[in-house]
Simulated assay, not measured.
Amino acid sequence: MIRKSKDFLNLPIISCHEGITVGTTVKFLINATEKKVSSIIVSDDEYYKGVKLLPVNLILGVGNDALVINKSSNIVPYTNIATAEDLLKEQIDIISSVVINNHGKKEGIVEEFEIDDEYNIVNVIINKNSNLVSIPIDKVKVFGKKLTIIEDEDIIEKNGINISDDNIDKEKELHSDVNVVSPLDNLPTNPINDTNDINKINLYEYDVYYDSTFISDFKVGNKTYKKGTNFNEEILNEIYSIEPNKLKDLVNVLE
């Protein structure tokens, strides 16, 4: 069965053995070399003690309303997993990474990715000029910290599969009733300098756009950034504070 990454995130984690909620799924820990999900990073009442992980092989089931595990002890400190520290240092965030082909041309931004039952990444969904296109994993060369590198510029045209916007909207509606309050909700909204704390909101994935120019007017809330304006960190923070969902549209208006 193929699932989207968003199907696993922002869900309460239920322990079958104790019959309680033991945490909330926050984000994936990615093994970029193997192109698969290693663990899920978890937020719980003791989040201040450090990063905790749920190895994906211990997940019993995933539904629209919860992720189910056998017992709370399945969630462990990252120090209990031999490879976790190295993966945490890499900080691979596939979602919102900038897509570059191997000739150095920007192709879009990653909107989503899909995984199979073994948690291998099988497809990457790219937003290119407001069109969602699915690229098979064998056409992805590298997952980097802020970049996803794919094969030459013809790959999207030759291998990409256009995805219906209607289907995307229906899936968003399906998951819209999941509303989990996480201890991370109250974190600051400015870019974070502490790169060791991967639970913090990280806006640095957009700094590759600094000094780019708006190729058209870009309206965010009641503010409009005029064509020809240079994009910088101050503008990034403004957009995030006004309408954070607009960040994903930057790839379409910067050059």
Rank of each mutant, 00 (worst) to 15 (best):
M1D: 11
R3G: 05
K4E: 13
S5M: 14
K6R: 13
D7Q: 13
I13D: 02
S15K: 00
S15I: 05
H17Q: 12
T21H: 15
V22Y: 00
V22F: 04
T25N: 03
K27S: 07
L29M: 05
A32G: 09
E34I: 01
K35C: 04
K36D: 03
I40S: 01
V42Y: 03
D44Y: 04
Y47V: 12
Y48I: 14
K52N: 08
N57E: 15
G63W: 09
A66M: 10
L67Q: 00
I75K: 01
I75D: 04
P77L: 05
P77I: 02
T79E: 12
N80D: 13
I81G: 01
L87E: 04
L88R: 00
I92E: 00
I95W: 04
V99E: 02
I100T: 06
E112N: 13
D117W: 07
N120Q: 05
K141M: 14
F143I: 02
F143Q: 01
K145V: 06
E153T: 11
E157L: 15
N159C: 14
G160T: 04
N162G: 12
S164F: 08
S164L: 10
D166A: 10
E171I: 11
E171L: 07
K172F: 13
E173S: 06
H175A: 00
D177I: 06
N179Y: 15
N179S: 11
D185E: 13
N190S: 14
D197R: 10
D197T: 08
I198R: 02
I201R: 09
L203V: 02
L203Y: 00
Y204P: 06
T213A: 07
F218D: 01
Y225F: 14
Y225M: 06
K227M: 13
T229Y: 05
T229R: 05
L236S: 00
N245K: 12
L247P: 08
V251Q: 11
